[in-house]
């Protein structure tokens, strides 16, 4: 059997499926977004969405802002934890057990994971009951549930494992000898972390950020189950256009706008990070040192 033939055989089924049931649907959405009241093609829907007096840009900004805060929270949780597991814990069994525990809770599914927060943040939920029991508060805090904080807590809960797993793998692949060399040359633990581990793990953090950001901008469940009357998010509007207003072209337009806005947000984040890294000489030096180090090890 010929090698080229075998190569194509292994790739064709999935590439065909991607073409028919992924590229084609996205193209379909794009086409449909241009069919307005004035026939096809028209920019009517986009005018309605982005035109004057529309609250959609505000909804979009709110969605992106929420998703970015979820990404930052995920980094705050996952980077120290991944560092601890990958570089401070010796036992592979402990590492596997902690990751498996997070994976189990993750695979229980977003719906159940989201609903669960009602019993923790509710009026007579875990947090209020404990705080009242300790005498910290007299009246239950009502603002915990049904608002932006609850939505962000649950969104982070549902997405941060992506960050944990990718950053853990990235840090696991860093050669321990780089850290040892840093220590031998007189760097303290904090310097080793900021100037060796973090720059080398940066690609993993980026992958994690995208894997967290993407599902978060499109989720319907958290705002619906925990959001109460806090501002609407883009995904809910899309769902409503498809299922309640039955205005598919408008739904398609909102979808396309959300993808574009998400892409722009990620691009902007990349540019800001790169600019910060260049501005701060320290990080710049650390990144260059890191990349040459990784190159010579290969």
């Amino acid at each position: 059997m010929n090698e080229t033939w075998r190569s194509w055989l292994s790739g064709t089924p999935w590439l065909l499926m991607i073409g028919c049931f992924f590229i084609l649907p996205l193209a379909g959405l794009l086409l449909m977004s241009f069919s307005g009241e004035g026939g096809f093609p028209s920019l009517d829907n986009y005018r309605v969405v982005l035109g004057e007096g529309s609250d959609r840009p505000a909804v979009l900004l709110r969605t992106i802002g929420t998703a970015l805060s979820v990404v930052l929270l995920s980094i705050a949780i996952a980077v120290p934890a991944a560092y601890y597991l990958a570089k401070c814990v010796l036992s592979a069994r402990v590492q596997a057990a902690v990751l498996a525990l997070v994976a189990v809770t993750f695979l229980v599914g977003p719906l159940v994971r989201t609903v669960a927060w009602r019993g923790i943040l509710g009026r007579s939920g875990l947090v209020n009951t404990v705080l009242q029991g300790l005498g910290v508060i007299d009246e239950p805090i009502m603002a915990l549930l049904y608002g932006r904080p609850a939505v962000i807590v649950a969104m982070t809960y549902n997405a941060f494992p992506f960050m944990l797993f990718t950053v853990f793998l990235a840090m696991k692949m860093i050669d321990d000898r780089y850290l040892a060399a840093g220590r031998d040359l007189g760097a303290g633990p904090a310097t080793v972390f900021w100037r060796i581990v973090l720059p080398l793990a940066a690609p993993g953090i980026w992958t994690g950020a995208i894997l967290v950001f993407v599902p978060t901008i499109s989720t319907v469940l958290e705002p619906e189950i925990l959001g109460g009357t806090s501002g609407r998010l883009a995904a809910t509007e899309i769902r409503d256009q498809f299922f309640h207003a039955l205005n598919w072209p408008m739904g398609s337009t909102l979808t396309i706008v959300l993808i574009v806005a998400g892409g722009v947000a990620i691009l902007a984040l990349a540019l800001v990070t790169a600019a910060l890294a260049r501005l701060s000489g320290r990080i710049g030096i650390a990144m260059r040192a890191g990349s040459t180090g990784a190159g010579s090890a290969r």
């Binding site: 790739g11 999935w14 590439l15 991607i18 049931f21 992924f22 590229i23 084609l24 649907p25 996205l26 379909g28 959405l29 449909m32 995208i210 894997l211 993407v214 599902p215 901008i217 499109s218 989720t219 319907v220 995904a235 899309i238 769902r239 498809f242 598919w248 739904g251 398609s252 979808t255 959300l258 993808i259 998400g262």
Partner: peptide, 27 residues
Amino acid sequence: VLAGLGFLPLVVPVLVLAAGLQVTFVE
């Protein structure tokens, strides 16, 4: 390029895929 194409579903929101599939299947 082809390999990258195969991983695209990881970076497109599920809701977008769901809406696109609904439109396509009906069409």
